[in-house]
Each structure stands twice: as structure tokens, then as C-alpha cells.
Simulated scan of single mutants.
Amino acid sequence: MNIFIIWFLVILGIGMLRFFLKKRFAIDREEQAGIPVRRFERWSGTVMVSVVILLILFSERPPEQLFSWIFFVFLAVNAGQVFLEWKFLKKSRKYQMSIVYFAVMALALFVFIATVSWQIG
């Protein structure tokens, strides 16, 4: 039961981090200025969810390998998103926010995978 409370607090903290970073890097003002910030977020989310669903549906591997593949997909898609934001949103600081946010998310996902692997194995 304690592990659920800890993960709930981690998820809540990550949500607060995203809110704080949006305010810190003034992403809301960039959206009002006409910079297409949300388009990259939607693209990244759609690709990631689609690939993870396909992995879950067609994977016959043990959970540890499945989580490792999900971690790899997460890193690859988000690295692509940060690169595209850096390349195409020249006037935006969105890519800086994405780098910080996805580094924290990757660390949290890595800890989650390590925890699941430790409890299963």
C-alpha cells in the first residue's frame, strides 16, 4: 500500500513540475504569440501511445523486457520531439522545458522499471 502512495506522490510531483516549467519558460505566452507548441506534444503523445499499445498487444516477452522496450520507445519518441522542437520552433524555449521534463520522466520511468523488476524477479 505504501508503494501506491509513493507513486501517487511521484506522479503528482511530475505534474507540478510540468506546470512549474511551463510558467518558468513562459510557454503559455508563446502559444498566444502563434507558435505551434501543442502540435509537437500531440504528435509525440500519439506516436508513443500507439507504439506502446502495439508492444503490449503483440509482445510475448516477459514483463521485464516489455518494460525495457517501453522505456526505449519513451526515450526515442521524446528525443525526436525535443529535436523537432529545437529545429522548427526557433523562437520558442519549449525544447528547453521538454529536455528538463523528459529527463525527470525518464528517471522516474527507470526507477519504476527497476522497482517492478526487483519485485517480480
Rank of each mutant, 00 (worst) to 15 (best):
Q96Y: 02
F40I: 07
S44G: 09
V52Q: 05
D28M: 02
Q119H: 13
L12V: 12
V111R: 13
E41F: 00
Q81E: 01
F72G: 10
Q81W: 04
T115Q: 12
L66D: 07
L17G: 00
R18N: 13
L107N: 09
S117G: 06
F4V: 12
M105W: 02
E41N: 00
I6Q: 06
V77C: 09
S98T: 12
S59Q: 09
F72I: 12
L21W: 04
E41Q: 07
Q65H: 14
E64D: 14
Q32V: 07
P63L: 13
Q81F: 02
I3Y: 15
Y101R: 14
D28F: 12
V82P: 03
T115N: 12
V10E: 04
F19Y: 13
F88A: 01
I3S: 15
F8A: 15
W86Y: 04
V37P: 00
R61Y: 11
L55V: 09
R42L: 11
F71H: 07
F19C: 02
V47K: 02
L12T: 07
F112R: 06
A26E: 10
R29Y: 07
V111Y: 09
S117Q: 08
V104L: 08
I99D: 01
S44L: 05
M97T: 07
G121I: 11
M48P: 01
K23R: 15
E60L: 14
F20M: 03
I113H: 01
W69E: 15
G34P: 11
T115K: 15
I70C: 10
A103L: 15
K91D: 14
E31L: 09
E85G: 01
L107W: 01
F4T: 12
K87M: 10
A79H: 00
I99A: 01
R61L: 13
L89A: 05
R24F: 03
L107Q: 04
V52Y: 06
L17I: 06
R93E: 06
G45K: 00
F112G: 01
K91M: 11
F112T: 10
K87G: 05
A114F: 13
F102H: 09
E64P: 10
L12N: 07
A79E: 02
V77T: 00
E60R: 12
I53S: 08
S92E: 07
N78R: 08
A79F: 02
I99L: 15
Q81A: 00
I113F: 06
P36R: 07
K94D: 01
I56G: 12
V104G: 03
F74P: 03
W86G: 06
R39S: 10
S68V: 07
F20L: 06
W43M: 11
I11R: 08
S98M: 01
R29W: 08
Y95N: 08
F58N: 13
L54K: 13
Q65V: 15
P63Q: 11
L17K: 05
K87S: 02
F25H: 03
F19A: 10
S50G: 14
K94R: 04
I3V: 15
K87Q: 07
G121H: 14
M16S: 10
S92R: 03
G34D: 00
L17M: 11
W7V: 05
V100K: 01
I35S: 05
I5T: 15
K87D: 05
I27D: 01
A76D: 02
